[in-house]
Write a protein that binds this DNA or RNA. Sequence first.
DNA 1: AGCTCACCCTGGACGC
DNA 2: TGCGTCCAGGGTGAGC
Length: 267
Amino acid sequence: MPELPEVETIKRTLEPVVGSTIKKIRILREDFVRRMDYSPVQLEGQVIQGLYRRGKFLVLEVNPGQNLVLHLGMTGRVYLYRGEPPAEKHIHFILSLKGERHLVFQDPRRFGGVWFVCDITAFFAHLGCEPLTRELNTRTLGKMVRGRKVSIKTLLLNQALICGIGNIYADEALFHAGIRPDRGAGTLSEDEIRRLSRAIKTVLWQGIEQRGTTFRDYRDGENQMGSFQHHLQVYGREKQPCSRCGALIERRVINGRSSHFCSRCQL
DNA sequence: AGCTCACCCTGGACGC
DNA sequence: TGCGTCCAGGGTGAGC
């Protein structure tokens, strides 16, 4: 499940594509293309000028008016392959570069996709703040939760407010902050908002340091697994003892998403 | 406007 | 072994 730390890790491992010339674009599944503001063929022969992450999106900037946006959905993998790409299942998109390198996008579940975007600012207009910047702090998080009846867990997953947090890091951040996922967002105290704002940054940075969480599908741009799964405190640890107090971790579905927490440490 | 929920999709786990 | 069923969830959009 690629969330911010996973996409950031992929971005870092794909850095070598910047400055490369695009030789050919192969779309193996038409419906994997979610948007086509310009013809993909126009990218062939052009040089990739930049690569960056926004929330859980990855952007290849060929020029300011021609961007290639990737989203990995649940099971997406994007990696650089040297030599002819493998004839594996579920490869929907290949970007061939000069020097016999191929950027391969594989996604069994096809929740991911690619967008050929001209106006990148408009494309991201609906997206919330980047949690690892100063845009997220006690004051801004306080504004987001004020008066909101949704659970704090649901609020953290809302990409229009904060972008990049998914199910794993939401559960981990709430454990870190000592707040139950089913608490109404509007009921958080000033101190809890401060703790949560810091906890979000802490767990996301830890995830990046560990090169992401590989539960099953996730791989980075070099097709390597992450290691944050070994450091998870609550996610996927139902009925296992809490690392802090020993009580058993509970699992509850909140808004259709499984949520993991310690009912003794999280209030 | 705020919120909930069904939907999309496939592979793996599990029960019989 | 094999078959059927359920589950995982990011983002979108319908409907209340």
